[in-house]
Design a protein around this nucleic acid. Structure first.
Lengths: 196, 196
DNA sequence: AAATCTGTGCAATTTAAACTTTACAAAGTA
DNA sequence: TACTTTGTAAAGTTTAAATTGCACAGATTT
């Protein structure tokens, strides 16, 4: 029967870890962020302790500048943060280790942005409509009246939608989602099993 | 006091509609799809009836080929469908008019994909680990043992995560989400107001 | 059967995003 | 003070995505 040396085993383990990292990256991509974001998240996650731009650059084979750009992006998404390491003057970056939390952070940063942009639009649009309405007379064509009415309706619908999104964000961010869609950890699964 | 002609008013209304279309497109982009997808969604939505590839091409100034590509993509996302129009041999496309439903369709198609890819990976990885474990002996280095153990843990965590995603998808797709985060339509708001 | 229309596969092109190189400011060290 | 180190701004390059143009099959009409 064949046998693996320690080094071979380590090699094999590493390749498994890389598969997992790829999956993490793939998952990130679904949020519409660059695959490198996911890659770094995976690498730091698997590394289990904060990493510097240089070590990331080495690990990925990419430039340090790019590492800097990506880490900044991750920080803006609230899925990474700088960690102070005494004795070193390099920045050390660590990532959120809770996958679901990462999901929520990305979800909320993306959609809050959308809601924000909508809110400012809505104000402008409502004003514009009010302004146009003052020009409506009995002479105005039927089409104008209908289109005006419809526009108002559309705006109402759209408003209802992004209010919903806004509530959705809160529902996730507050953690209430977990009351209805709980995370079942392997440990809990074991316990449940043992109770039988 | 100035006065707008019918045509001017129509023009103004149209520009409002375009602003709204842009917002719809912006919203779509958050799902990581091409902005043209959102644009077409917005255009067809505002048009209020099914449109052909030609009319879309005219409206956007883009090629018919592109329109075809995008509509196919939208159909695959379940946010558009062909509609039979008698007397015409062109395909007519219509879109989901319920914004929240559109959100859910995109959410579920994106994340189901992720879950699917993960499931197949997990099987492979579990097997590989089981295989490697048979090579573990008392001679194996401490590091190998630790890394092996950790890999297993990571896999468990990851598994818990995407099971959660899977449940989340079901939570949305079934509409249960609306029980906890309801959509408040302007009509309902009015009613609520009137009841006071 | 010939002519027209419609949607789409495919290769080519354009445009946008990802990534690198160079340079430099700020802060630390000798 | 001069010399490193570190992070990032800015501009340039490469790579990937979006978009087009051409061509053609299948269906329809004349």
């Amino acid at each position: 029967m064949e046998s693996f040396s320690n080094n071979q085993l380590l090699q094999e383990i590493k390749s498994c870890e890389e598969l997992l990292t790829d999956r993490i990256a793939d998952n990130m991509e679904t949020f519409g962020v660059s695959s490198t974001v996911g890659r770094l998240l995976g690498i730091i996650y698997m590394n289990r302790e904060a990493m510097t731009l240089d070590s990331l650059a080495e690990e990925t084979g990419m430039s340090k500048t790019r590492m800097s750009q990506v880490m900044r992006q991750m920080i803006s998404f609230n899925i990474a943060e700088k960690e102070y390491v005494k004795g070193s003057r390099k920045d050390h970056y660590n990532v959120e280790r809770d996958y679901a939390q990462t999901f929520i952070s990305l979800f909320t940063s993306n959609w809050s942005e959308v809601v924000k942009r909508n809110t400012s639009l809505e104000r402008r649009l409502r004003e514009q409509i009010r302004h146009l309405e003052t020009f409506l007379t009995e002479d105005s064509s039927e089409e104008v009246k209908v289109r005006m009415e419809r526009l108002q309706q559309e705006l109402d619908e759209w408003n209802a939608y992004y209010n919903w999104i806004n509530n959705l964000v809160a529902f996730f961010e507050s953690g209430e989602i977990f009351n209805h869609v709980p995370i079942v950890t392997p440990t809990k699964k074991e316990e449940a099993k043992n109770e039988e």
